[in-house]
């Protein structure tokens, strides 16, 4: 499945929800399911400090594809991270760096990425792309 197909899959999954609370119920479930980042990896150099919630991001590269694992102290932030990890994992650095992440806008979560929300997500995506760029 390509990165774009994974995005489309998420957009389709969210299409069944017309109520905001149902949508968030699903995001919260995703957040609860997200494998926790190992505590030993929750170091300051992996921490992305937001004004409201905090995000830890760990990056791996096997020479071909990127692997991300992440965690947050806020469950909704974590749920959105789960979606980002799903889209970016096992993708080449080039694909990640050039991705527009249109699914976020399409499913109505762009508000969480504005710098003013300060939940660390905007910085996290920037960091993910920067890490990918380093490998291109």
């Amino acid at each position: 499945m390509t990165l774009q197909e994974k995005e489309q899959e998420i957009i389709d999954e969210f299409a069944i929800y017309d109520d905001w609370m149902d949508k968030y119920e699903y995001i919260i479930e995703l957040g609860k399911e997200l494998p926790l980042i190992d505590d030993s990896l929750k170091t300051d150099n992996r921490l992305i400090e937001g004004c409201q919630s905090r995000v830890w991001l760990n990056t791996d590269f096997d020479g071909e594809n990127m692997q991300f694992s992440a965690d947050s102290d806020a469950i909704i932030t974590k749920g959105i991270i789960a979606l980002l990890v799903r889209v970016f994992n096992n993708e080449s650095p080039k694909n990640i760096a050039s991705s527009s992440l249109r699914f976020i806008e399409e499913i109505g979560l762009h508000e969480h990425l504005s710098p003013t929300r300060s939940n660390g997500l905007a910085s996290m995506i920037r960091t993910m792309k920067m890490e990918a760029l380093k490998k291109v």
Partner: peptide, 22 residues
């Protein structure tokens, strides 16, 4: 057991404007 950011986000989706954070 909850983070203020999560509570604030869900209240917002129900039409209620509160402040969360420090």
């Amino acid at each position: 057991g909850t983070h203020p950011f999560d509570v604030g986000t869900l209240l917002d989706k129900q039409g209620i404007a509160v402040r969360t954070g420090h």
